[in-house]
Design a protein around this nucleic acid. Structure first.
Length: 227
DNA sequence: TACCAGGAGAAAA
DNA sequence: TTTTCTCATGGT
């Protein structure tokens, strides 16, 4: 089945989500570095657990690349415990901080072209395509559309994709259909997550789902493909 | 008790 | 190349 991701369909969906949920003001975080940390910590983890881990980092004044890297790995892991996979995420965060500092942090990286920055992020151990795109979009303001599990399920339920397509195929198709628009991508991804987490959990029957044919209650069902 | 959450990477088939 | 397994806490 070919992809049915036209600009018209995608924009209609966005408008429906925006009418239902309003502006989301994403990403939750006070600085680009906090956004990057959150993007790594939220891998396969509920955001409420990530918030606890970030609060622990704040409590030891480690929400900064140099100070975070200065923490012993065992102490860092203890801070990250609420977010799950804490040993793994401690290693990933440290690897990311080393990469970030070696390249001059936000001060220098902000001038890197998007393609180069994306390729470099993907070379950091523990940063896959979704995490890299979260960072590019929300910490660097680059026009990169994030394909997460919710997005994949929603598009599959709408019959626009099968759900098994690889990440790059979907990202390229959405970006081609919508055109490069970081503000739109920012709000779009946030609205999809909001829709899946709030509407579908609090109203499992989804009787008033604003999206025609969405069957959004299924958004929290089994995964339809690799995220 | 069992399942799931804003993934990624290594190991096995 | 594709599929399966591992990492782990907290909420429902």
């Amino acid at each position: 089945m070919s992809l049915r991701l036209s600009g018209t369909r995608l924009r209609q969906l966005f408008q429906g989500l925006y009418r239902a949920h309003g502006p989301q003001h994403w990403w939750p975080g006070d600085s680009p570095f906090e956004i990057m940390v959150g993007a790594i910590l939220t891998q396969n983890t509920a955001w409420t657990n990530v918030e606890r881990a970030i609060a622990n980092l704040m409590a030891v004044d480690a929400l900064d690349a140099e100070r975070l890297l200065a923490l012993p790995e065992a102490q860092l892991a203890r801070c990250l415990r609420p977010s799950g996979y804490f040993n793994l995420k401690a290693r990933r965060l440290r690897a990311f901080c080393r990469w970030y500092l070696e390249r001059g942090g936000q001060r220098r990286l902000r001038y890197w072209p998007t393609a180069r920055l994306r390729q470099a992020l993907l070379a950091v151990p523990g940063i896959g395509p979704e995490t890299a795109d979260d960072i590019l979009l929300y910490a660097f303001g680059r026009p990169v559309f994030v394909i997460d599990a919710y997005t994949r399920r929603l598009f599959a339920r709408l019959g626009w994709i099968q759900g098994q397509e690889d990440y790059e195929t979907l990202r390229a198709a959405v970006e081609r259909a919508l055109g490069a628009d970081a503000r739109l991508y920012n709000e779009y991804h946030a609205l999809i997550v909001r829709h899946a987490k709030r509407l579908c959990r609090t109203r499992p029957q989804c009787g008033d789902c604003p999206l025609r044919g969405c069957r959004a209650r299924d958004l929290n069902g089994p995964r339809t493909g690799r995220a």
